[in-house]
Simulated scan of single mutants.
Amino acid sequence: MTAPASVLGVHISLDHAFSKQAADEIELVAGLGVAGDCHKGAQVRHRSRVAADPTQPNLRQVHLMHAELFDELQPDFDIKAGDLGENITTRGVDLLSLPTGTTLKIGATALVSLTGLRNPCQQIEAFRPGLLKRVAYKNADGHLVRKAGVMGVVVLGGVVRPGDSIDVSLPPQPHVALERV
């Protein structure tokens, strides 16, 4: 029997540092993201995307990472929750297999709609040499596999804490696989 999906940790960063600091709780704000986080906003906040077009909608308001990735990377890489810049570290939900538009009810009220896959970048390689090849690689069929978590937008706000439950609701068929955002 598998454990129910839950929040392992929550993280925030006021500046554009690669890793985020652990917090006792974070507040998700509808249409904006994580209160106090540098990526909060209705328009893009990631520096490369702001440089390209600052009026783009922010489809990366919340970054969720599955703790199972950290387990998989052991013992080669000592990675802990928040190290890869995620706001919410989960356990017990296969984030990467969920379709676009999946909603995650987190805690009592927060609702996040998944928009896509995080695109791993050179910052991951700078953080731990060799890590990029483990979180972004081509499979046997030649397709690029991205394992650095998923991105979402906040539909309903609320406070999220470690230990909170996560309820997954799939969108109507046909499902569309998550792509890079």
Rank of each mutant, 00 (worst) to 15 (best):
G31S: 08
S113K: 15
A177K: 03
D141W: 03
F127M: 13
K40N: 01
T115P: 07
L14Q: 14
E86S: 06
P75S: 12
P129W: 08
E68Y: 04
T102N: 09
G158L: 02
G142V: 06
I12L: 14
A51Y: 10
S169I: 07
I106K: 05
V50Q: 05
G33C: 06
G31D: 11
H63P: 07
S113M: 14
V168T: 15
V176Y: 08
R128E: 09
A5T: 11
A140P: 03
L64P: 04
H63G: 02
L111W: 05
T100M: 13
K133Q: 14
T102D: 07
C121G: 08
T89S: 15
G107Q: 02
A140M: 02
M151D: 00
L144E: 00
E68D: 12
P172M: 07
P54R: 02
A23Y: 00
F127K: 14
T102M: 09
L28S: 05
D53Q: 08
E125P: 08
S13T: 11
A5H: 12
E27Y: 10
T109N: 03
H46F: 10
G107Y: 00
D71Q: 10
A81S: 15
T2W: 02
G85R: 15
K20M: 14
S97E: 01
E25Y: 13
R45F: 01
A30C: 04
D15I: 11
A5R: 12
T103R: 14
E72H: 04
A23T: 04
G101L: 10
V50A: 02
P162C: 07
H175C: 00
L111F: 03
G36T: 04
A67T: 08
F18S: 10
D76A: 13
K133W: 09
A148T: 10
T55P: 02
A35R: 12
P4R: 11
P174G: 07
N58M: 05
